[in-house]
């Protein structure tokens, strides 16, 4: 966004909630979608994680450096929030393939809260599940959220070559799944 820098400045220097609200409105969809797919289609969990991520962004907005894009910084917070949640869990993330949690992510323009989950969607989420966490993250950021390898390496805090490896393995696994 062109005025991201201005909104961030207002939020950081003046504690301007309205400015931050506009940032939330602009980025709530991609962040929630990212977390929804990361959590294997768990709508409630992804919503909670997204809320935590935005609250953390608010508390730490003074640390944001304009050298990076605000979206990159926000994705990093969202990823770290998910990662912290996973580490804190006693057991592995449960498979939400029960129709109730899979709220039809059916493609562009489709209502996120659609009651039905098509086989196509279940297949996609199931395909994501076969990936390791890092592979899934890299694939979602690259192919769905249109982030570059360089930005993904900043989001995940690992070298570019590692990201490329994750993408390479992720592509192979997805291709094999849909063969």
């Amino acid at each position: 966004m062109q005025n991201d820098a201005l909104l961030v400045s207002r939020a950081a220097l003046l504690g301007d909630r309205k400015a931050f609200s506009r940032l939330v409105e602009a980025y709530q969809s991609p962040i929630r979608r990212f977390l929804f797919n990361l959590t294997g289609g768990d709508e409630e969990l992804s919503k909670d994680l997204a809320q935590d991520a935005f609250v953390k962004a608010w508390l730490n907005i003074g640390q944001f450096r304009a050298a990076a894009k605000f979206s990159t910084w926000l994705y990093r917070i969202a990823y770290n929030t998910f990662y912290d949640y996973m580490r804190a869990k006693v057991s592995t993330v449960s498979t939400p393939l029960n129709g109730r949690s899979l709220s039809g992510v059916e493609g562009n323009g489709t209502d996120y809260k659609s009651a039905s989950a098509t086989d196509f969607n279940i297949d996609f989420l199931q395909a994501l599940k076969i990936l390791k966490e890092d592979e899934r993250t890299a694939m979602l950021l690259f192919y769905m959220e249109d982030q570059t390898v360089e930005k993904i390496s900043k989001i995940m805090n690992c070298p570019k070559n590692t990201i490329k490896s994750h993408l390479h393995r992720g592509k192979e696994k997805i291709a094999t799944y849909f063969k």
Partner: peptide, 17 residues
């Protein structure tokens, strides 16, 4: 991946935040 890239409506999410 693009086929599954849905826009998520706000539905009061920002306000709650």
């Amino acid at each position: 991946f693009k086929a599954h890239k849905a826009d998520i409506p706000d539905d009061g999410f920002s306000e709650r935040i």
